[in-house]
C-alpha cells in the first residue's frame, strides 16, 4: 500500500545552520506515528516542513515530502496552501496563544468550513457547533460566541482540535498537544484524539518528548536526536528491544512504577548545538558505548520489517547478511 506521507532525506537549515539532516519516515493511512525526542531535536521543524509552515530564516534544503506519492516541496506554494487545513491539519503545543484573541470561536472554526468545504456562513455556524460537541465541549451554542480568553487551556485545545477536524483531514499532526495542559486534562485530550481518529480514520503524527505518550497512543515510533532519526520501530520493539543507545538511555531515564530509585537515570552531557563538523553519530560524545568508527557517517541499519537504527552496533548484532542499508 502506498504510504499516505513519506518523508525522504529531509534537510532543513536555519540561515546557515543545519537543524535537520536525512530525516526519513513514512506513515500509512489511519496510522498513528509517534515522534519522540528532546526539545531541539527537530521534531517541530519536521512537522512544520511537512505543513509548509517553516518561516524564515528556516528553509528546506534537501529531500522530499511525498503526499500520496507527490512531492509537496515541488508544489507551487499556493497548491501546498490549499492542502493545509484540508488534507493535513496541525494542532500546537500552546493552546493559550494559538487562537486569535480578537475573534470568536465560531468565526475561527467557520473560517475553515467556509474555505475548504464551501459552506455558507449559516451552515458553517451549525457545523461548528457540531464539531464543538464532537470534541466534548458542553453547551456548544454558547461557546461559539465566546472569545478565546474566556476559555480554559483545555477548552482552547479542544477548540483547536475542532478547527483541525473541520477540514476533514487525512492527517493530523499534533505537536506536543498536551504539554501545556494539566495532567488530568492531558489524558482527556489524548483520549479524545484517539476516539476521533477511530471515528474519522485519519492518520496522526503525535510529536512529544514523552515516551509514555507514544507507548500508549502510537503504533509506531520515530526517535529523533539532534536533527536526525536515530531509530524507528513499532512501539513494542522500541520499548522491549531498543537498538540505539540513545533510545536505551531514554527508556532508562523513565521513572518506573513500584521500583525504588534514589536517583533517576540521566544521559550525561547535552545535545550538540551545532551539527556542522559532526560527520558521524551526533550522539557519540554522550554515548557510553561510543567507538572510533562512530565518527564516520552511517545510514539506518534495518533489522526487522519495522525496526531500524542508526548505530554500528545494530549492524553487528544482525550480521552483515541480514541488514540492508537505505
Amino acid at each position: 500500500m502506498q504510504p499516505l506521507l513519506e518523508v525522504q532525506d529531509l534537510e532543513v537549515c536555519f540561515a546557515r545552520r543545519q537543524v535537520l539532516r536525512r530525516v526519513s519516515f513514512s506513515i500509512a493511512p489511519g496510522e498513528t506515528l509517534g515522534i519522540v525526542g528532546e526539545s531541539g531535536s527537530g521534531k517541530s521543524v519536521t512537522a512544520l516542513s511537512i505543513m509548509g509552515l517553516l518561516s524564515r530564516p528556516g528553509r528546506v534544503t534537501g529531500g522530499r515530502v511525498l503526499w500520496h506519492g507527490e512531492d509537496l516541496l515541488q508544489l507551487p506554494p499556493d497548491s501546498h496552501r490549499q492542502l493545509r487545513g484540508k488534507a493535513m491539519a496541525m494542532i500546537f503545543q500552546e493552546p493559550m496563544t494559538c487562537l486569535n484573541p480578537v475573534y470568536t470561536v465560531e468565526k475561527q472554526i467557520s473560517e475553515v468550513l467556509m474555505l475548504h468545504r464551501g459552506m455558507s456562513k449559516k451552515e458553517a455556524a451549525e457545523a461548528a457547533a457540531d464539531y464543538l460537541e464532537q470534541v466534548g465541549i458542553a453547551e456548544p451554542m454558547a461557546r461559539l460566541r465566546n472569545y478565546p480568553h474566556e476559555l480554559s487551556g483545555g477548552m482552547r485545545q479542544r477548540v483547536m482540535i475542532a478547527m483541525a477536524l473541520a477540514g476533514e483531514p487525512e492527517l493530523l499532526i499534533a505537536d506536543e498537544p498536551t504539554t501545556a495542559l494539566d495532567v488530568t486534562v492531558q489524558a482527556q485530550i489524548l483520549d479524545l484524539l484517539k476516539q476521533l481518529q477511530a471515528k474519522t480514520g485519519m492518520a496522526m503524527i503525535l510529536i512529544t518528548h514523552d515516551l509514555g505518550l507514544v507507548a500508549e497512543n502510537a503504533e509506531r515510533g520515530v526517535v529523533m536526536y539532534a536533527g536526525e532519526v536515530v531509530e524507528e520501530g513499532s512501539v513494542e520493539e522500541l520499548f522491549t528491544n531498543p537498538a540505539h543507545p540513545y533510545t536505551q538511555g531514554l527508556l532508562r531515564s523513565l521513572p518506573r512504577w513500584g521500583e525504588q530509585q534514589d536517583m533517576l537515570y540521566t544521559i550525561p552531557g547535552t545535545v550538540p548545538r551545532r551539527l556542522e563538523g559532526i560527520a558521524g553519530c551526533a550522539f557519540a560524545e554522550r554515548c557510553p558505548l561510543a567507538e572510533e568508527r562512530c565518527a564516520e557517517p552511517q545510514s539506518m541499519h534495518r533489522f526487522s520489517a519495522t525496526q531500524a537504527a542508526r548505530c554500528w552496533r545494530t549492524k553487528d548484532k544482525v550480521g552483515d547478511a541480514e541488514w540492508q542499508s537505505r
Binding site: M51, L53, S55, R81, Q82, L83, R84, G85, K86, A89, M90, F92, E94, T97, C98, L99, N100, P101, V102, Y103, E111, V112, L115, H116, M160, M163, G167
Partner: peptide, 26 residues
C-alpha cells in the same frame, strides 16, 4: 510572530487573509 498567525496559515488561508484579517486586527 504570534502563534495564532501560524494557526491561521495552518488552516490554509490565503496570505492576504492571514495578513489583513488575522494579523492586522491585532
Amino acid at each position: 510572530k504570534e502563534d495564532y498567525v501560524r494557526t491561521a496559515r495552518a488552516k490554509g488561508l490565503r496570505e492576504k487573509v492571514v495578513l489583513v484579517k488575522h494579523a492586522l486586527r491585532n
